[in-house]
């Protein structure tokens, strides 16, 4: 029996939409992989670096609350600064004092940071949802029912560029190698003159910056509110990171995109509500069973 398939609606659209949505997961996954490479922990506060950044952009772009209204590019810069600053403060106030504690303590501490951040966001914003204007307006491509906006192009482009830059950073720069060294043997690393605390701050600052970019790019594509990055993107972001190989930055990119696509094709199984999530987890299990280190993962 022939199945009636609408090529655009059933194949192309989920493929493109999934890749774009997956790019956001990949962006979050990048930050998670970075901190895993640097500290060997899963950072549950990664999503909130993005939420804080998104709210900062929103507040300054619209003049909401006590924030003065500023031009949009400046608001974006302030958002990036806020996300990075939050990560640096987290590192200095929470992570560094616990650095010698078991890793599980650090993981729980990051969950605490996320919950604290969400409460602060609730305090300032209430439970209200917000919508934001896109960074770039308009349609980049439209044909036969398929439409791609410039905002979506920016999301994919930024993710690709960041994944590549991060991979080069770790493989081609001394600082990147130092980060890996600190994660593997902090005591020995400090004996050769590398400042562990400086490296730690740098890693967290970079992770905060990546999270901020993810939040700022995702916010205009949804209704965002307190904790939105944690509730809507953190689990897929983790999944993307694991899927691609938890130590591989390009793997996070690839994992995110593949998960986004799998999710969208799961949505096509209309007879089974929630199939999108089942498809993602089934895929992840299959990958882990076949290749435990993930698609592109390798030690360090």
């Amino acid at each position: 029996m022939l199945l009636a398939v609408n090529l655009t609606q059933d194949i192309t659209t989920p493929l493109v939409s999934g890749a774009i949505q997956g790019a956001v997961y990949g962006l979050l996954g990048l930050g998670l992989v970075l901190l895993y490479k640097g500290n060997r922990i899963f950072n549950f506060a990664q999503g909130e670096f993005g939420t804080v950044a998104a709210f900062t952009v929103f507040a300054f772009a619209t003049g909401a609350g006590f924030a003065p209204k500023v031009p949009y590019p400046l608001a974006i810069l302030l958002g990036l600064l806020a996300g990075t600053l939050m990560a640096l403060v987290t590192e200095r106030v929470v992570i560094r004092p616990l650095f010698r504690q078991p890793k599980v303590t650090l993981v729980v501490a990051t969950a605490g940071v996320a919950l604290f951040a969400i409460q602060v966001e609730l305090f300032f914003n209430g439970t209200n949802g917000q919508t934001a204007r896109p960074i770039v307006d308009g349609e980049a491509f439209g044909s036969g029912g398929l439409s791609i906006t410039w905002q979506q192009v920016v999301i994919v482009g930024v993710l690709g560029a960041l994944a590549l830059a991060s991979a080069l950073f770790f493989s081609r720069t001394q600082t990147g190698v130092a980060i890996l060294a600190v994660s593997q043997e902090p005591t020995a690393t400090s004996l050769v003159g590398i400042s562990v605390s400086r490296i730690s701050s740098l890693t967290w600052g970079m992770a905060g910056f990546l999270g901020a970019i993810a939040g700022i790019l995702l916010a205009p594509t949804t209704l965002f509110g307190p904790g939105f990055m944690t509730t809507s993107a953190l689990i897929p972001g983790f999944t993307a990171a694991v899927f691609g190989g938890i130590t591989s930055l390009p793997g996070a990119f690839l994992g995110g995109v593949l998960i986004g696509i799998a999710e969208q094709f799961g949505n096509q199984i209309e007879a089974f509500p929630g199939a999108n999530r089942v498809v993602v987890f089934a895929l992840l299990l299959a990958i882990l069973l076949a290749r435990p280190a993930g698609l592109l993962g390798k030690e360090a």
Partner: peptide, 23 residues
Amino acid sequence: FGVPKAGSDSDAVDLAGKLRSFN
């Protein structure tokens, strides 16, 4: 076009794509 009761971001992306396609 049916959507889940508690539609997620992913469901919204899916519906948006379908609506644009149906136009």
